[in-house]
Design a protein around this nucleic acid. Structure first.
Lengths: 168, 168
DNA sequence: TTAAACTTTCAATTATTTCTGAAAGTTTAT
DNA sequence: ATAAACTTTCAGAAATAATTGAAAGTTTAA
């Protein structure tokens, strides 16, 4: 397989994976494109290589900046903005974990903890089932949350080393 | 807060989380409803409690069965099918991990490994960047995959115990 | 200033996903 | 056999999400 074909396939695959995980397909594709680019790209490059409009390119670049997955890079003597992706995969994983924790896990945990306060007849079967599920879930999601905190502090080798040692 | 209100909020929250993670909102809501139900529910119950059509209820129940997150339960003397959810949160987490691994991680890993074979001029900057990213990514995704395997075999307490011990 | 170069916005359009509900299919009891 | 009870299917409708592109906004150089 040649490079052009391989790039195309990678960008397409990454886009599909993104949308299966609730991330805008184009955002994932822009990210993929920048991940494999040896040098910074400008909006025009992205529009051209992915066949998307200026508005779409701009919006997804902005969103990737929000996630801190990409950075602006200034090219001396050029007014355009260029973009580069963070290339370290472990760092990328941490960024994504951090953001999803903040945007999704933490709010859910808050709701679950609030739902522990539900009042009513303690001998009611419905209430008992509800309370038990909420307690188990909030306990579990709490541990997930802590695990992400752990990962955010950890070194890649230690992290995988610990998890993988049992099946090495 | 009373039980009725709390249930509503839980179902709504779980549905939102589901769609943020690429799972159909209604499927997540049906799952949530069954998770907090002390007894098995039939299609009618679900249609009524979630205000969805028969077709929608049926399709999502079927899909939850595919995931093995719920099971049919037969009530003697009743021709209707009733459904119960697996209640053990660790077991649920493993089911979801297993299914997402199979449906999403494994196919991507296959593509990434295929993309290592790309041919071309080894001194080309573009090719070098591409190859390096693909190698790093396939290495990382491979470790993720193995970690999921590990989790699938592990006991909940051991798993979280190991991960959490550093920040306890 | 001002005009060219560039970025951002957003209303309208297009694409994608999900949902509905009635019809078709299946199973069971008699 | 047949009819009632129940489940599944699927074409069209509705809802949601993503995209376009032109206009408005901003920055910079001269």
């Amino acid at each position: 397989m040649n490079l052009t074909e391989a790039k195309k396939q990678f960008i397409q695959t990454w886009g599909t994976l993104g949308s299966e995980w609730g991330i805008n397909r184009t955002m994932a594709q822009v990210h993929a494109l920048l991940l494999i680019s040896p040098n910074a790209l400008c909006t025009e490059d992205i529009m051209e290589q992915l066949n998307v409009s200026r508005g779409n390119a701009n919006m997804n670049l902005r969103e990737l900046m929000n996630w801190t997955l990409i950075n602006k890079e200034l090219v001396p003597g050029d007014r355009k903005e260029y973009f580069v992706a963070e290339k370290d995969i472990w760092e990328i994983a941490r960024i994504i974990a951090r953001e999803r924790k903040r945007r999704e896990i933490e709010p859910v945990l808050k709701v679950l903890n609030g739902l522990k306060e539900v009042e009513g007849d303690q001998s009611d079967k419905e209430l008992k089932a509800f309370t038990e599920t909420i307690n188990n879930l909030s306990n579990f999601v709490g541990k997930m949350d802590k695990s992400v905190d752990m990962m955010l502090k950890a070194d890649e080798n230690w992290f995988f080393g610990t998890i993988l040692k049992m099946i090495k």
